[in-house]
C-alpha cells in the first residue's frame, strides 16, 4: 500500500526508469578504411594504399586490400584521379602534371562502400644538404655486443661512428633513414643475428640536427644513401607512445577524416656513406 502510494504520487521515478532503461545502440565501425599514402617531393604519386581494418576476433590474419575505391588528389584547384593497376590496394598517378612541391596543399579523397574519406597535407621544405664527418664506416663484428648496451644513437669513441648533421634552427621534426643501394647485398651479421638488428634499431622522428651512425645501424656492407626527411606533424603523431586500455578511447592520432591511417608529404636530402669491413 505504502509503495503504491509513493509510485502513484511520484511518476518521475517511472519516467527516469524508462529513460535510463533505453540503452543506445552503437554503429559497427569494423568497415573503416585504412589509408597509407605518402607523397614524396619531386616524385610522382605512387604510394597510396588502401586496406580494410583487420577485425578483432576475425579469421583473417592479414588486412584485405581495397581495390574498388574511387581515389583522387586535389591540388591547385585540379582533381587527379588515381588508378589501381593491381590487386594489392595500391593506387597511383604516374604523370608529371601532378607536381609534389614544397609549400603546396594536397587533398586526398577516397570513396568506398559508403565511406567518404578525406585528408590533406602540405609538402614540407627540403632539408639542408647534410654534412658527414667521413664517408666510410668500418665495422668490426666483435664490437657489436659492446654497442648493444650503449645503443646505436649514442656517440661513443669505440666502435667506429659517423656523424651526419643538418640545419634545424627551429627544432622541427626530421626522420633519418640509411638505405643500402647495392644491387647485391652482403650481410654484415650471420643469419641468426640478423634478427637483432631488426629488433633493436628502429629510428623515430627527431628534433635534433645530427645523427650518429654506428655499426648497429647497418645490416649490409656497401654504399648507403643517408636520407634526411623533413616530416610533418601527422607523421610524428604515429610515433607517439600509446597505452591502449578499456578505460579510454585509446585511438591513435590520424589526419584521415572518416578513416584511419595517414596521408602525408615528405621532402628529403641525401648524402652517401660506405660501410666497409
Amino acid at each position: 500500500m505504502m509503495i503504491k502510494d509513493i509510485l502513484l504520487k511520484l511518476p518521475l521515478f517511472a519516467l527516469i526508469v524508462l529513460i535510463i532503461s533505453c540503452n543506445k545502440q552503437t554503429p559497427n565501425q569494423s568497415d573503416k578504411v585504412v589509408v597509407e599514402a605518402l607523397l614524396f617531393a619531386g616524385e610522382t604519386v605512387d604510394d597510396v594504399n588502401l586496406t580494410k581494418l583487420l577485425a578483432y576476433g576475425g579469421e583473417d590474419t592479414i588486412p584485405k586490400p581495397i581495390n574498388d575505391a574511387e581515389v583522387s588528389i586535389t591540388w591547385n584547384n585540379k582533381t587527379f584521379e588515381l588508378t589501381n593497376s593491381s590487386d594489392t590496394g595500391s593506387y597511383h598517378y604516374p604523370f608529371a602534371d601532378l607536381k609534389i612541391e614544397e609549400g603546396e596543399l594536397y587533398q586526398l579523397n577516397v570513396n568506398h562502400a559508403g565511406f567518404e574519406i578525406s585528408s590533406f597535407t602540405i609538402c614540407p621544405p627540403k632539408p639542408s644538404l647534410p654534412t658527414i664527418t667521413k664517408d666510410t664506416l668500418k665495422i668490426e663484428l666483435f664490437s657489436i655486443l659492446d654497442s648493444l648496451f650503449t645503443g646505436g644513437n649514442t656517440e661513443i669513441p669505440d666502435p667506429d661512428s659517423v656523424v651526419v648533421e643538418w640545419a634545424n634552427p627551429n627544432n622541427e621534426y626530421y626522420f633519418v633513414v640509411a638505405e643500402n643501394v647495392e644491387q647485391v647485398k652482403e650481410n654484415i651479421y650471420p643469419e641468426f643475428l640478423g634478427l637483432i638488428g631488426d629488433f633493436f634499431f628502429q629510428t623515430s622522428p627527431t628534433q635534433a640536427s645530427r645523427y650518429v651512425f654506428t655499426d648497429l645501424d647497418f645490416r649490409h656492407f656497401g654504399r648507403h644513401e643517408i636520407r634526411i626527411y623533413k616530416v610533418n606533424q601527422e607523421y610524428v603523431d604515429l610515433y607517439q607512445s600509446y597505452e591502449q586500455d578499456s578505460r579510454t578511447q585509446a585511438e591513435p592520432i590520424t589526419n584521415v577524416f572518416n578513416g584511419l591511417g595517414i596521408f602525408t608529404a615528405v621532402n628529403y636530402s641525401t648524402v652517401d656513406l660506405f660501410v666497409t669491413k
Binding site: L53, A55, Q202, T203, S246, A250
Partner: peptide, 15 residues
Amino acid sequence: PFTAPVGQYFLTMLD
C-alpha cells in the same frame, strides 16, 4: 563501460 577494440591495422614507415 569500456571502450573495446574493433580491429587492428599496420602502416609501413619511411625506414
